[in-house]
Design a protein around this nucleic acid. Structure first.
Length: 526
RNA sequence: UCCUCGGUAGCUCAGCGGUAGAGCAUGCGGCUGUUAACCGCAGGGUCGUAGGUUCGAAUCCUACCCGGGGAGCCA
């Protein structure tokens, strides 16, 4: 598309790469760990927190964390004054430190450098830190989310999240979209189906928004192409790895765009996100253990599959074969893991202390995975049945979505759904009145629906009828109807869930790790 | 709302009718190149809560509370 030349400039502007040294020195009288490879042989001042420590009587290795990376600082009794050495001896995990020393290249270390310290100064001694360098359970980590964010994996995820946010802005800005902020407090339900958080608004009921789309449509009639970027609230009682009660959604809305163009935008946006993350977040993806090959496969065009074709696919023998193969693979993995566990337990008695700890940690991993496997093995027969007996007119369940994506190695776009299962504002397919011009993008690897949208209805009488048929109060939509009274045009848009996208790109098990402070059913603290 | 798994030391877990355990973390001691460093010693528990069964309950039963992940619904 035209305007791509702007993209590269915008890209630079939004880049998450470190600032250039000149500007860095002007604003900060200390050096970031990330930039240390540029300072080999130089004397630098570092400020950060003690991530981990190893040592002996006269030599300590301090692993320092400053938010940009980790580096090992060697504190040798012969090279520092007494106070500095005492700091190295007594500093506890997460104590804040300032360290001055020279940068030495050392291939053995993380980041390829280590610091030979001249001095160490204590900024603040930390109390006994709850998150120790070992395995922790979900509940404990969630209770300590404010501290968990300092851990490497969480750090990497937040970096990728930031990069994805910037990629989204860069894409839309370069394509001539205007960012708009829709209201968070609303008096109307867009879909009418989801449960809303209700609150009191000067003695009247109001709701936290579940979508900015309707207001986005109004803005699109003023600017042509717009996108929202803001929080969304759903009071659904969903306790699954894909649900948050508060999440961030991006909703573009384009005047004079039909369904095909809408799908094109969704595809381009996702390709831009994957491309930017792959280019700028290699280290982060490495920390997360993400399989690069899986992301390299994400290239256009994404398969477009009609709802009818999707139903056929669910009914196909190939679907049954895929699920049978999965059942077999999972059973085989279960066997291998159980054998390893048995072997580990047999070796445990004679094992040294360090080895015992490794076995313990491995046992936790194995048990966690075995729980998942057990669940999958229980579910696969149900998935097979759900797919085989899927009836035209129903909405896809979570397992159906997963099964559909297993036929492909990249995201797929499913379009033209039965109108009855879609929102009232969707335009009908002129070729088949039973269908709505909606589309969903399903991410691969079981991540499911990350985009939902479609072409909007333009006819006032039809919309009014729809509102009535859905049992919605007509009066709250008066302003929305006006958009059809004053120059109604074909237009389309979609919503993309930020957290589900981050989970997919990072290869995470649960969306709760994709947002700094997740809000879940039964969890609103910290 | 339903189904399912769990709650034992600060953390991760073992123990499943007969004296409350391990590793990590913490404290003390040792060690000049460690990579979740290592070695020794020590402190640390109303076994989620309330009932019940029993000579005896962390263990068995009932109810409740809290959490995990799944269904429905959805991004």
């Amino acid at each position: 598309m035209s305007g791509r030349n702007v993209f590269s400039e915008t890209q630079l502007f939004y880049s998450s790469r470190p600032l250039r040294r000149s500007s860095n020195i002007m604003t900060e009288p200390f050096t970031s760990i990330k930039s240390l490879p540029e300072h080999v042989g130089e004397r630098v001042t570092l400020k950060g927190w003690l991530y981990n420590k190893r040592g002996s009587k006269a030599l300590y290795f301090l692993i320092l964390r400053d938010g940009t990376g980790l580096v090992q600082c060697v504190v040798n009794q012969d090279n520092v004054d007494e106070t500095s050495f005492a700091v190295a001896e007594t500093a506890t995990q997460e104590s804040a430190l300032e360290i001055v020393g020279t940068v030495n290249a050392d291939e053995r270390q993380v980041g390829g450098v280590e610091i030979h310290a001249e001095s160490a100064t204590l900024i603040a001694q930390a109390e006994s830190y709850p998150i120790t360098p070992k395995e922790h359970g979900v509940e404990f980590l969630m209770d300590n989310r404010h501290l968990w964010l300092r851990s490497q994996r969480q750090w990497a995820i937040m970096r990728v999240r930031n990069r994805i946010i910037m990629a989204i802005h860069a894409y839309f800005q370069s394509e001539g979209y205007i960012q708009m902020d829709p209201p968070v407090l609303t008096g109307n339900a867009v879909e009418g189906t989801s449960t809303l958080f209700e609150l009191e608004y000067f003695d009247k009921p109001a709701y936290l928004t579940q979508s900015g789309q309707l207001h986005g449509e109004a803005m699109a009639m003023a600017h042509g192409k717009i996108y929202t970027f803001g929080p969304t609230f759903r009071a659904e009682k969903s306790k699954t790895r894909r649900h948050l009660t508060e999440f961030w959604m991006i909703e573009p809305e384009m005047a004079f765009y039909d369904l095909d163009m809408d799908m094109q935008v969704a595809e381009e946006l996702l390709l831009a996100i994957v491309g930017d993350v792959l280019r700028d977040c290699r280290d982060e993806l490495e920390i997360l253990g993400r399989d690069f090959a899986k992301l390299d496969l994400i290239q256009g065009p994404f398969p477009r599959i009609s709802y009818d074709e999707a139903v056929e696919l669910l009914h196909s023998d190939e679907t049954q074969r895929i699920l049978d193969a999965e059942h077999e693979e999972t059973t085989a993995e279960e066997k291998v893991l159980k054998e390893e566990r048995t072997a580990n337990r047999a070796a445990y008695g004679q094992a040294k202390k360090g080895e015992k700890r490794r076995i313990d940690a491995r046992e936790i991993d194995i048990n966690k995975r075995l729980d998942e496997i057990e669940e999958d093995l229980r579910n696969i027969p149900a998935w097979k049945e759900s797919a085989a007996n899927f009836e035209w007119g129903a909405d896809f369940g979570g397992s159906d979505e997963t099964v559909l994506t297993k036929h492909f190695d990249r995201p797929i776009i499913v379009h033209r759904f039965p109108a009855v299962i879609k929102a009232f504002y969707m335009k009908r397919d002129p070729e088949d009145d039973r269908l709505a011009l909606g589309m969903d993008v399903l991410a691969p690897e079981g991540y499911g629906e990350i985009v939902g949208g479609g072409e909007r209805a333009t006819d006032l009488a039809f919309l009014k009828q729809q509102v009535q048929d859905h049992g919605l109060p007509e009066e709250v939509f008066d302003w929305y109807f006006d958009l059809r009274r004053y120059g109604s045009v074909p237009h389309s848009g979609f919503g993309i869930g930020l957290e589900r996208t981050v989970a997919w790109i990072c290869g995470l098990h649960h969306v709760r790790e994709t947002i700094p402070f997740p809000r879940l059913m039964g969890r609103i603290h910290p």
